[in-house]
Design a protein around this nucleic acid. Structure first.
Lengths: 153, 153
DNA sequence: GTCATAACATGCATTATGCAAAATTTGCCT
DNA sequence: AGGCAAATTTTGCATAATGCATGTTATGAC
């Protein structure tokens, strides 16, 4: 049982890593996580972004700096509160997220297509039961697609 | 389908992270991976260890240095080939691996116990079908228990 | 108007990671 | 025996992620 879950997990992680490497941009997994959160949540300030990523604000700060230097994120000062910075994706960042997401969906679809069809619905139900038993909140497949623990990315 | 697999993956990753944090020693995930490989494979030289971990030899080198400093790994020179270093777990390292592994097994067992019993065998079969379709080799639950991709740890 | 608080920014430290180059040892070939 | 290529480890240099502690600036309350 444990081995089955661990093996399946490894397969999925490998898919994510490949879909990230397939994009021309040199992106690390934490950087992609930040882009995904920004795409899902729109412009946010640094503190909330750090909370979503479950990292220290200073970590999010410098990750954002690098993504800004790479042209994928932009920072503007919130006029209503000039302490706060608004972080948002640029069009380049949006394109990158869409490319990686599409690539991953394609690969997972290919893998699922190689599975016996009668196993597919059983897998979904079994995995949902497992996640429920673990108390894990469900994710939205199109937006949050990464494992969201720092130190694991 | 994708969401189900991703969510289940996250749950398992969270289990691993908690079981690692529960041990008194301050261990990172890559460090634990190295300990696990050493426990499974016995004394190995640096190059083979780096291959197993899929990291650069220099990375494995310095990780080993830290684990040696922490008293969990020991390095001896291979008498048959004095270029090569033999890396092995100390008794402390073995104890740590066993503690973390046992803790994780306990937590997964608890989660599985909270699942409806009729779902369990279906989950194993479905996950194995998924991993087979992805071409992922099966893992041994008692030894290799981590996701084995660098950059993900 | 001053002061506590919030939010960001920066300094410092550690770990993980890879590439490139150096140093040592082995093994082979002449 | 001598030399040279290859293997193996080690070190130098660089970057990314991470956290804690500290400073800096802006807000809001009194």
């Amino acid at each position: 049982m444990v081995a089955a879950v661990v093996t399946a997990s490894r397969a999925l992680v490998a898919v994510s890593a490949r879909s990230l490497a397939a994009v021309g941009e040199a992106l690390t997994v934490p950087q992609f996580r930040m882009l995904v959160v920004l795409e899902a949540g729109g412009p946010v300030n640094l503190s909330r972004l750090a909370e979503h990523l479950a990292v220290n604000p200073s970590t999010a700060m410098r990750m954002a700096d690098r993504l800004i230097a790479a042209g994928m994120v932009e920072r503007t000062t919130d006029p209503a509160d000039r302490r706060a910075a608004k972080l948002a994706l640029t069009s380049v960042g949006q394109r990158v997220v869409h490319q990686v997401t599409r690539r991953r969906q394609e690969e997972i679809t290919r893998i699922v297509g190689a599975m016996p069809a009668e196993r597919r619905s059983a897998m979904v139900e079994a995995l949902q039961a497992f996640a429920d038993a673990a108390g894990e909140p469900q994710v939205d497949p199109g937006t949050y697609g990464e494992l969201l623990l720092p130190g694991w990315n």
